[in-house]
């Protein structure tokens, strides 16, 4: 069940905890390059976190403990998920049968309390944000699961060690098209779950149009720092899923695997940056259609897998 403490475990924990904020810096740098600017330092997110952890905060008087518990849970679940999913090595420190479900539901728990914290402020804008978050999550989760069905069918297993380990690397030769479809649909899920353009604009100046950022308007200081860190963890987790899904980080050589994995996550971040630079935000009514579309694409992948075997 649980792999013994080894070098992989140590690297895994270190990467999972230290690496994620870098991805935010990469995305911003790519956007800056596209916009013709020099951009902020790659390590800006680390400076921000440091700064936020040392700031004081102001708390709304309508709130209860849920308001502060939201950031805590989103961070705690983010860390736990980062320790459950495989990174540069197929078996994660906390891998077990059924870890896939636990990971998805942990993210759900984080979302639940983030929405609760938003509603706790009694602000119309934050209510709006959490309503949108709830709605889009309902459409994004099945996409993730349909993709999992494809992987489970191809690898004959459903714990992450096989689904995102050597099993998927072997499956690529037989079912390239289906896996490509899953990859595309999961990339869409990454964009939605991490509130990126074209689904949400993390940098917009208009609260009315936001989703995730508007939910955390009232958080400040260390709590906001936790949210920022939790968000970077979530982005990292999804990027890791995509990289593992490509099967490239399963060469057998541990050093190469970790190298490919880390490069891969940075490539995913670059891709997100390119999408953000090249696309405009969708109109709100278009988002459900786009998500259902991603679901249909993944479902088509499942159909392909089912008939070709």
């Amino acid at each position: 069940m649980f792999s013994s403490l080894s070098l992989h475990t140590i690297i895994h924990v270190a990467v999972a905890l230290l690496f994620p904020p870098l991805l935010l810096g990469v995305i911003n740098r790519v956007k800056a390059v596209f916009g013709g600017r020099r951009g902020q330092p790659l390590l800006q997110a680390y400076y921000d976190l440091w700064k936020l952890m040392h700031k004081d905060s102001v708390i709304s008087q309508t709130t209860t403990w849920v308001f502060l518990f939201g950031p805590v849970v989103s961070l705690a679940t983010g860390i736990l998920v980062a320790l459950i999913i495989p990174l540069g090595h197929a078996s994660a420190p906390l891998a077990f049968a059924g870890d896939v479900i636990l990971a998805v539901y942990l993210l759900g728990l984080g979302r639940f309390f983030t929405m609760g914290a938003a509603l706790d402020t009694g602000s119309a804008f934050e209510g709006m944000g959490s309503a949108r978050e709830a709605t889009f999550a309902c459409l994004a989760e099945p996409v993730l699961f349909i993709g999992l069905l494809v992987l489970a069918k191809l690898t004959g297993s459903f714990s992450m060690i096989d689904v995102l380990g050597d099993g998927v690397a072997e499956a690529w030769s037989g079912a390239t098209v289906a896996l490509l479809l899953v990859l595309v649909s999961w990339f869409v899920v990454l964009l939605v779950e991490n509130s990126r353009i074209p689904f949400d604009d993390p940098n917009t100046h208009l609260e009315l149009t936001m989703i995730h950022e508007v939910m955390v308007l009232d958080h400040s200081g260390p709590a906001l720092g936790m949210i920022l860190y939790g968000a970077s963890l979530k982005l990292f987790v999804f990027a890791a899923l995509l990289v593992r899904l490509t099967g490239l980080a399963a060469t057998g050589n541990p050093l190469a695997d970790w190298g490919i994995f880390l490069t891969g996550t940075i490539v995913v971040a670059c891709l997100v940056g390119v999408v953000e630079s090249a696309m405009a935000r969708f109109r709100l009514p278009t988002i459900p259609a786009a998500l259902v579309g991603a679901g249909v694409v993944a479902f088509f992948g499942f159909l392909l897998v089912m008939i070709e075997l």
């Binding site: 259609a289 259902v292 249909v296 479902f299 159909l303």
Partner: peptide, 12 residues
């Protein structure tokens, strides 16, 4: 969204 869903189910 419904027409897309019908399309997906139809494909299946």
């Amino acid at each position: 969204v419904p027409s897309l869903l019908i399309g997906g189910v139809g494909a299946a």
